[in-house]
């Protein structure tokens, strides 16, 4: 554990909690892509199956449980409790275009051809592109609420901090996970355009160009 990894995890947690609180407080999920949130729930579910097979630390286990619980709560709020406010007409990204190729790739390129490992690999690949329905939705409507941009900022910051964490671990621990690093780089790149707009538009409800 290093400071970049810890702040990365906390950024990730901040993003998840910001989104959950926004929906809860405003009683609305307008502008939020339910499809991205479903994909994130699928990411956490397939990645954290190792909760049943290996114990790493109390921190590790509790964070996993919190991420899973929050992502399911978010999906519940969008598709059940506040379904009336869900902007399904603008959430038109075809998720099968992500899930199918990512599924195929996780069978072909993985560390070990075993069920748990393939599911872990699937989750890593899927996470790197899971935000696309959300970005697609914003590009369709042309704008995002301030709080939604904060959510995206913390999501992007989390992966950027993980990249620094991996550089750190490579130099100081000799740790290098090619699959995680490549997917992490892809994921971070997807946020670059957004980061630029977030900072130049004064971190407020930006009108984001398509």
């Amino acid at each position: 554990m290093n400071i970049f990894r810890l702040t990365g995890d906390l950024s990730h947690l901040a993003a998840i909690v910001i989104l959950l609180l926004k929906i809860w407080k405003t009683r609305s999920c307008a502008g939020i892509s339910g499809k991205s949130q479903l994909l994130f729930a699928l990411v956490f579910t397939t990645r954290y199956l190792d909760l049943f097979t290996s114990f790493i630390s109390l921190y590790n286990t509790s964070m996993k449980l919190i991420y899973i619980a929050c992502s399911y709560a978010t999906v519940y709020l969008i598709y059940m409790k506040f379904k009336a406010t869900y902007d399904g007409n603008h959430d038109t990204f075809r998720v099968e275009f992500l899930v199918v190729p990512v599924g195929g790739l996780s069978f072909l390129v993985n560390h070990d051809f075993s069920p748990l490992e393939i599911l872990w690999t699937f989750s890593i690949y899927l996470e790197s592109v899971a935000i696309l329905p959300q970005l697609f939705m914003i590009s369709k409507t042309g704008e995002a609420e301030t709080i939604t941009t904060h959510y995206l900022f913390f999501q992007g910051l989390y992966r950027a901090l993980y990249l620094v964490n991996w550089i750190w671990r490579f130099y100081f621990e000799g740790f290098f996970d090619l699959i995680a690093v490549v997917a992490g780089v892809v994921q971070t790149i997807l946020y670059c355009d957004f980061f630029y707009l977030y900072i130049t538009k004064g971190m407020s409800g930006c009108a984001l160009p398509a």
Binding site: R5, D9, H12, N165
Partner: peptide
């Protein structure tokens, strides 16, 4: 091979 790999990151 086929040992369960441990992933210590989240």
């Amino acid at each position: 091979k086929n040992a369960i790999l441990t992933h210590d990151e989240l």
